[in-house]
């Protein structure tokens, strides 16, 4: 089954994402911020990355940028979890190489649907 890296500094969101995806049979690894995620992404190749945008240490956009620069992650789908409904963050995310976004608040079904969409 596909493996997913779930990145969020908020424990409740992280657990919700992780719980939902695990429930659907995905292999999920959690990371608490961009730095943590980057380290984990380097040690193992994930099939998909779901990341929050606003995080300490390294935010989601910087994380996506860094990941895209890695050969292993050139084409891997990367989704941002964002509450920013303005185009600003999405724009920055896209420039950094994000595949798409999921707008908070979302429910587990929406999350799953989106993930299934990008993982085919």
């Amino acid at each position: 089954m596909a493996s997913i890296l779930a990145v969020d500094d908020s424990a409740s969101m992280r657990q919700m994402v992780s719980f939902t995806l695990k429930g659907a049979g995905y292999d999920v690894v959690e990371a608490v911020d961009g730095v943590d995620a980057l380290n984990k992404a380097k040690s193992k190749k994930f099939d998909c990355v779901v990341t929050d945008v606003n995080m300490p240490n390294k935010d989601g956009i910087a994380l996506i940028k860094d990941l895209r620069a890695l050969p292993d992650y050139k084409f891997v789908p990367m989704l941002m979890l964002t509450t920013e409904s303005g185009t600003d963050k999405k724009q920055q995310g896209k420039e950094a190489g994000a595949t798409g976004w999921i707008v908070k608040p979302f429910n587990p079904d929406q999350l799953l649907k989106t993930i299934q969409k990008v993982l085919g």
Partner: peptide, 23 residues
């Protein structure tokens, strides 16, 4: 930025967990 992030997380979480008044 730190203050913003904290507010942002609370908003995101409260929306997701159905506390719309808080969000």
């Amino acid at each position: 930025n730190t203050i913003f992030r904290a507010a942002h997380s609370i908003k995101g979480g409260s929306g997701t967990f159905g506390f719309s008044a808080v969000a």
